[in-house]
């Protein structure tokens, strides 16, 4: 019996450190539900207006801009031209810009996109699932993502100007190296 005393003590204390360390560590480093700069945005796989399926995995390695918008949100409408211009300017340079519509009918989204002249890829969220995973609270919200998949900035509210968007794209592109 005596022979095993030391090993038993070591094993018990080791387990305590392991399990207890995990428990306490969990409280210290628990990730909050809110996305913040430096996090990786959740993955998504959505249908776009043109009928193709977009998987966020395809954007890996590219600077990425994700703009959440709805037809019911005036600032969203107001920043559409800026997004479209930026898209035209950067699409050949490997920058990916997508708009994710906030779970509205395809009909409304199409008609709206036609009116405001938005031709960049617009993805259709369904039942607010993607929106929830991104933890959105206000619209529009724009995520700027480095090529390595980390969020550079989250801009809540709008309308954004072309200069604002460009400034962030510069950072994304610079961050590629």
């Amino acid at each position: 019996m005596k022979r095993y005393r030391k090993p038993i003590q070591y094993i018990v204390l080791f387990l305590v450190l392991l399990i207890g360390g995990y428990a306490v560590g969990h409280t210290l480093f628990a990730s909050t539900a809110v996305l913040k700069t430096g996090d990786e945005p959740p993955a998504f796989k959505l249908l776009s207006l043109d009928g193709s399926v977009h998987d966020s995995a395809e954007y890996a390695g590219k600077p990425l801009i994700i703009n959440f918008w709805g037809t019911f949100c005036p600032p969203c409408r107001d920043e559409m031209p800026a997004l479209q211009n930026v898209y035209e300017r950067w699409q050949d340079k490997g920058v990916q810009l997508v708009g994710i519509n906030l779970s509205e009918d395809k009909l409304s989204v199409e008609s709206f996109a036609r009116q405001v002249g938005a031709h960049f890829p617009i993805l259709l969220d369904r039942n607010r699932q993607t929106e929830k995973r991104f933890g959105l609270k206000q619209y529009p919200t724009t995520f700027f993502v480095y090529p390595n998949g980390k969020i550079e900035a989250i801009l809540i509210g709008g309308p954004l100007t072309e200069e604002q968007i460009e400034a962030h794209i510069e950072k994304l592109v610079a961050g590629r190296s």
């Binding site: 399990i19 428990a23 306490v24 409280t27």
Partner: peptide
Amino acid sequence: WWFIGLLVMIGT
């Protein structure tokens, strides 16, 4: 951390 820590110590 301290409350969970207390619980861990109670467990120990």
